[in-house]
Design a protein around this nucleic acid. Structure first.
Length: 356
DNA sequence: AAATCGTGGAA
DNA sequence: TTTCCAAGATT
């Protein structure tokens, strides 16, 4: 075992994180936590993790659920393909592995939504497998500790880091603590800004520190300009129900419930009658909402309308009516939830104005 | 191989 | 306000 690994393991024992809800848990919980933690901070995940487990306490419960119910528990967490893949994988575990989570990293990685690093993490935590992780924490730690230049996302850089990671692995029995140590070091000491090098267990061997390059490593990722998009949504209310469509599986917000999007050049009422068979009366337009994604900016506008009449069978081929009281537990993207909340609170204000 | 896929926290 | 990016995977 390397000196680097030995120091990390000892440090984790004394100063690492030991109170995370998924630490030392069964494979299902470790798996769930690893998926939720992909590109997502611990503080954001904890609440989602607890709620998800209450609703789906084991793999069998998850496999038996509908995709929409799974997405509802994921609503607001983002990267919804993670939830769809998790759900698919649960069914595979039930059917192909008899409900027992596979133990080999190669088998684990075959499951949808699980790549090399996530498979390694699960295998190391749950089965002491000697498989290395390479996440954002490890890339940052390695870039500094070993003075590794280059875009951490570039293939060449990644390949060097995978080799380094493999070479540093301790004995099997130490794999859970070592894997956790790498994550803890990156998350608590070797942070992106203002790293706490004075407390670092491997500061003495750190190349970046010796060369005074801590601030410039890892190299910043190449950034691109975000295109600006805009969308107009139809919030069609029928009593206390609003009409929502299920997004296609590919693309943004796949599988989630979203109001119909009106083409930019269409007259809302005409389009609505033609496409959905709904007769609507325009009520008001909400204040525009700007939502920033990783790769584009979306300016959202929403037209609040009221449905005239009651027979709307044509609409139900495209989507569903959802009661206002059901929205809290529905599979909505975060900005759509904001829009619907805004529509409801402005409606309440209008009602109280009338009452006065 | 480069693009796509969310959201919110931190500086 | 802007910028960066977090326990990455998929195509």
């Amino acid at each position: 075992m390397s000196d680097f690994s030995r120091r990390l393991i000892a440090w984790q024992h004394k100063h690492g994180r030991h109170d995370l809800p998924w630490s030392g848990a069964d494979p299902y919980r470790v798996w769930l936590s690893e998926i939720m933690l992909q590109q997502t901070q611990v503080a954001t995940v904890v609440g989602y993790f607890e709620r998800f487990l209450v609703r789906f306490p084991d793999i069998a419960a998850l496999a038996a659920a509908s995709q929409e119910d799974v997405l509802a528990l994921w609503s607001g967490l983002g990267y919804y393909a993670r939830a769809r893949n998790l759900h698919r994988a649960a069914r595979i575990v039930m059917e192909q592995y008899g409900g027992q989570f596979p133990r080999q990293p190669e088998q684990i990685q075959q499951l949808p939504g699980i790549g090399r690093s996530t498979a390694a993490a699960i295998a190391a935590f749950c089965f002491n497998a000697r498989s290395p992780i390479l996440d954002g924490n490890v890339k940052r730690v390695f870039a500094r500790q070993f003075g590794m230049d280059g875009d951490p996302a570039a293939r060449a850089t990644e390949e060097r880091m995978w080799q380094t990671a493999q070479a540093l692995l301790p004995a099997a029995a130490a794999m859970p603590r070592y894997t956790q140590a790498l994550m803890d070091l990156g998350a608590t000491l070797c942070t992106r800004s203002r790293p706490r090098c004075d407390q670092c267990p491997v500061a003495a061997s750190c190349v970046a520190r010796a060369e005074n390059r801590v601030a410039e490593l890892p190299s910043p990722r190449a950034r691109r300009v975000k295109p600006n998009k805009s969308a107009r949504y139809l919030l069609a209310w029928r009593g206390d129900e609003v009409f929502l469509e299920i997004r296609p599986p590919a693309g943004i917000w796949g599988g989630l419930l979203v109001p119909p999007e009106i083409p930019p050049d269409a007259v809302a009422a005409d389009w609505c009658r033609r496409e959905l068979g709904l007769n609507v009366a325009f009520e008001r337009e909400l204040a525009p909402l700007r939502h920033v994604f990783t790769h584009f900016v979306l300016d959202m506008r929403a037209l609040v309308c009221r449905v005239q009449g009651s027979a709307n069978l044509a609409a139900e081929a495209h989507g569903r009516w959802v009661k206002a009281g059901q929205l809290a537990g529905a599979a909505l993207p975060a900005p759509v939830r904001l829009l619907l909340d805004a529509a409801l609170s402005s409606a309440r204000r209008a009602d109280s104005d009338i009452a006065e």
